[in-house]
Design a binder for these strands. Structure first.
Length: 720
DNA sequence: CCCGTCGTTATTTTT
DNA sequence: TAACGACGGG
């Protein structure tokens, strides 16, 4: 034992026992249940280094996937610090791995080798064009469902598509969109996962090649994986066919909060069944928060039924008790937050210690107004997105069209901006000809049709711009030149710059500056098709907000939605709006309520030292003032872990979660009613008034809706 | 093509 | 409340 230990590299000696166990494990699939703040990234990066250094694994055969580019970058850097050879391992986001795969096997996937990725906005454009009777708003709803379908790997003719929307029209729209998308040679986000899966599923030889290459596959944040990603992982690892690829997934079922976007918590809950022989390791030592905060978090999340279960233990000691504050209305809530931040600031607590968390973006405006007035510096995380700006999308569309002239969405975006007589009608004609005649370029589509003089002139001007830019891109003298040069050229010659200069002068916007910034961002990419594609990938596969002009080393309060806090930590956290209807959001089914509870858990565990919860009796939302009930979740916190300030509503008791009506009314459970006899709960939801509403199908026929709270002891749950 | 007006509609959003 | 899109007139 001793001798073996001295053989181990240094980086293993800093691990705790559970971390070490996770790092050195081998021989079966591994599920690492990593609680918040338990050193998850350290474990993954150490494992990568260990596999390379100690197990002499070829780094080329390691694939580590994450969900965000930020996480991938951090993982790569930290792994390289431990073992320089880790730079040869593939450490990427799921989607950028998909892009890598599709570029390599574009023929098998039926996409252009120079495809670019359509975002949601582009998808909406394509849906309206492939199904013209739809308004943009209607198209957006379909786009949402199409994305969800792809997250579940469902094609337009899949039977299970009914589970997303059983209306035949949805199938039609999806099919029409998909056909149109394939004509462009481009892909959407869903395709980046789904298409590689389909290619591998249908191509045995390629699948074996992949399985031979990847000896180790690590997946981070596995609780956020969707069905498509699960299917892809299964194909890639060949686990179903008994391959010896080592699969290790890391995640926290208690932090699964993206169901609405296709994340499937069942992936992590069922991992041990899907991958037989799985070893489970729990990382339960928390290095972030104090014990009082963790106990508070635990008393909430243990109310969930669908979880693997774990209990975090603080490495940092007891700490300060979290504070729950009741306030009359939202203005008082804002004032309260401002005042504790200011008071602390007078005692030299920096603003950047603080984060204010909320469920709805709409809640941020109150804080903003008051903070501006009181001169409290703040930053809002996740509002304005650089890449979503109109002018940026215009330039990106130019770049996308230069490498793929089948790109309908980009063509429509740039061919008449600024106006040159190529309006939507002309665009439709050109695109239709392009599709009908299966041309290689949309520009060829115009050859077979008649255009008016005005349209013809404008179109010719556009074509000559494309020619100019293509020449610049493909010139033989590009050695040493940067992509910035091309972007600046486009910016000037396309007259976009001039077009937006006018707008900037009238409305005081920053559009020309943004265009320039985009050009500057391309400084590190060579002027070549490959450089251009890499640049587009780097933007399209990283949708994080870019407030780069104001870096985060400034001292300011963070205003942020609960969802956006994942992976972050703050010394002092305020979770605002703890009211039924806001948080949890109203009309939640049981499963959704569990997800809301996980969201609360995520919020609580962001706090290092201090946690405040605020709840108002009255709230103005969407121009309406409503009387509010304290959040159900507040009653779930054990009273021993909470200090309560302000006027407590009479109906409220801390730690009253033992109240049988606070939970347990779940679909499928058997109940007994004094008047109607035995029945089964066919649905259960939590109303905005903080009460359960259940529907019971009685065994002797008939069904009824009840609010159990009002039935008192006439309605009882049959415990199994 | 731009501008004003009216009506509609309101979670959360790693890629 | 307020922000955004659709629509019609100049």
């Amino acid at each position: 034992m001793e001798a073996e230990d001295s053989d181990l590299p240094d980086y293993l000696s800093v691990l705790n026992e559970e971390q070490l166990q996770a790092v050195v494990h081998e021989g079966s699939p591994l599920l690492i249940l990593a609680g918040a703040g338990s050193g998850k990234t350290r474990v993954i990066t150490t494992k990568i280094a260990y596999l390379i250094d100690k197990k002499h694994l070829d780094p080329y055969s390691i694939l580590a996937v994450t969900f965000t580019k930020k996480a991938a970058n951090e993982m790569r850097q930290r792994a390289e610090l431990l073992s320089p050879k880790a730079q040869y391992a593939q450490i990427k986001t799921f989607h950028s791995w998909g892009a890598y795969f599709l570029r390599k096997y574009y023929q098998a996937a039926g996409v252009s080798s120079t495809f670019t990725v359509y975002d949601e906005d582009d998808m909406v454009t394509l849906v309206t064009k492939s199904y013209p009777s739809l308004t943009r708003v209607q198209a957006s709803a379909f786009v949402h469902k199409i994305s969800l379908a792809k997250d579940y790997c469902l094609e337009p003719d899949s039977l299970e598509l009914d589970q997303i929307d059983s209306d035949e029209k949805f199938r039609e729209v999806y099919a029409a969109y998909q056909q149109r998308l394939e004509a462009t040679g481009n892909v959407d986000f869903g395709d980046l996962i789904m298409k590689p899966y389909l290619v591998l599923r249908d191509n045995e030889a390629l699948k074996l090649e992949m399985q031979k290459r990847y000896r180790v596959i690590l997946v981070d944040e596995y609780q956020d994986s969707n069905v498509a990603q699960f299917l892809l992982l299964k194909e890639l690892s060949g686990i179903a066919a008994g391959s010896s690829t080592y699969v290790c997934v890391v995640g926290d079922d208690d932090q699964s909060i993206y169901k609405f976007r296709g994340a499937e918590v069942q992936n992590i809950l069922n991992f041990q069944n899907q991958f037989p022989g799985t070893k489970l390791v729990r990382l339960q030592t928390n290095y972030r928060s104090t014990q009082e905060i963790l106990s508070c978090a635990d008393s909430v999340v243990r109310n969930n039924e669908s979880r693997l279960g774990k209990t975090l233990v603080a490495a940092r000691g007891k700490g300060k008790k979290p504070t729950l504050v009741f306030l009359p209305d939202q203005d008082d809530e804002v004032e309260f937050c401002a005042s504790i931040i200011e008071q602390a600031h007078e005692k030299n607590v920096p603003y950047s210690d603080w984060a204010i968390l909320y469920r709805l973006n709409a809640q941020s405006s109150g804080f903003e107004h008051t903070f501006i007035h009181k001169k409290i510096p703040y930053q809002i995380v996740g509002s304005l997105k650089f890449y979503e700006r109109e002018e940026i999308k215009d330039l990106l569309a130019w770049l996308g069209f230069l490498v793929n002239q089948k790109d309908e969405v980009s063509f429509r975006r740039i061919s008449n901006k600024p106006a040159r007589g190529v309006g939507p009608g002309t665009q439709d004609k050109i695109i239709n000809a392009f599709i009908d005649e299966k041309c290689q370029s949309i520009l060829d589509g115009a050859k077979s049709i008649k255009l008016t003089k005005k349209a013809k002139d404008g179109f010719d001007a556009f074509v000559s711009l494309v020619d100019d830019f293509s020449k610049s891109l493909n010139s033989k003298e590009n050695e040493g030149k940067k992509l910035t040069e091309l972007i600046s050229e486009i910016n000037e010659k396309s007259l976009l710059n001039e077009y937006y200069k006018g707008q900037d002068e009238i409305s005081g916007t920053q559009k020309t500056a943004n265009l320039e910034e985009l050009a500057n961002n391309a400084m590190f990419y060579p002027l070549s098709v490959q450089g251009l594609l890499d640049f587009l990938d780097s933007i399209q596969l990283d949708r994080t907000t870019q407030d780069e002009d104001e870096s985060d080393d400034q001292d300011r309060v963070t205003l942020i939605t609960l969802h956006n806090t994942k992976g972050l930590e703050f010394n002092r956290v305020i979770i605002s709006g703890m009211e039924n209807g806001i948080f949890p959001r109203e009309d939640k089914s049981f499963a959704e309520l569990e997800e809301e509870r996980r969201l609360f858990y995520v919020g609580i565990t962001r706090a290092r030292n201090e946690l405040y919860l605020t709840s108002t009796r009255q709230r103005r939302l969407y121009g309406r003032t409503n009387y509010m009930e304290p959040s159900l979740f507040l009653s779930e916190i054990d009273g021993a872990y909470l200090r309560v300030l302000g006027q407590k509503p009479s109906s409220f008791a801390v730690g009253s979660a033992s109240d049988p009506f606070a939970k347990k009314w779940t679909k499928g459970k058997i109940v007994f009613h004094d008047d109607y006899g035995e029945g089964v709960i066919s649905s259960a939801r939590f109303s905005g008034e903080g009460k359960w509403v259940i529907n019971v199908d009685f065994f002797n026929g008939g069904s009824k809706v009840f609010i159990p709270e009002f039935q008192q002891n006439r309605l009882t749950l049959q415990e199994e």
